[in-house]
Design a protein around this nucleic acid. Structure first.
Lengths: 106, 106
DNA sequence: ACTTTTTGGACTATTATTGTCCAATTTAAA
DNA sequence: TTTAAATTGGACAATAATAGTCCAAAAAGT
């Protein structure tokens, strides 16, 4: 587990990684082969990374891919709740659905 | 709270409501003004309802709209976890993100 | 002041999802 | 056991959502 502020977004996490190492957007973007502007947007959570990109990022910064992926997925869920401004208890409901019953969608 | 099997999907819930009242797909579909086939797909969770439709459904079956909406939202989260086959603990992480910090996406 | 870095917006491209249509299958009722 | 009604399923078109690009403006650093 990295010693970052917990409970931040994927984007912030990424920015912190980058700044900790003193890289510019350009340097990172070049390495992970995306547009600078896109990387900036990802850091600001205006765009979502895809899986291959998360892999490249974890390789570049030498962090655990799984951890980054979880950061990303938990963001998605958090954003969904915020967007819909749903009650937090639906998380428990979702958990129970998974545990007791429902199966994958086709 | 309706006395339905708990922790089922939106689609199953809908089908149970319909069958309990002895309606055919056609009858319900006509009333809520969607294609029969689409309704069938929604009952099988092959299509997701949208908000206005959830409203129409709750009106038609005289059930609480908020409850149906939560059913739908918790499904979405459950399906996401299953699809990504993510660890359940990301739900807790998401909850903490919401509680301590992150704000709405733009 | 000049240079580099970052931001922001408008636009296009891509991907995902919904909704439609119709034929095939299943159910049930005559 | 045929006939009709109900349901399913797939292929496709329509729509919506999201990502990615390009470039100019703003901010930060030297």
């Amino acid at each position: 587990m990295t010693d970052l502020k917990k409970y931040t977004t994927f984007g912030e996490h990424l920015r912190i990684l980058r700044e900790k190492e003193g890289f510019t957007l350009k340097e990172v973007a070049t390495n992970i082969e995306i547009d600078i502007s896109l990387l900036a947007k990802i850091e600001r959570n205006e765009r979502q990374p895809n899986k291959p990109l998360i892999k490249k990022i974890s390789d570049f910064f030498k962090v655990d891919e799984k951890e980054l992926l979880n950061e990303f997925l938990s963001d998605q869920i958090a954003y969904k709740i915020l967007d819909e401004d749903a009650d937090l208890n639906i998380l428990k409901v979702a958990e129970n659905k998974i545990k007791y019953g429902i199966t994958k969608q086709k």
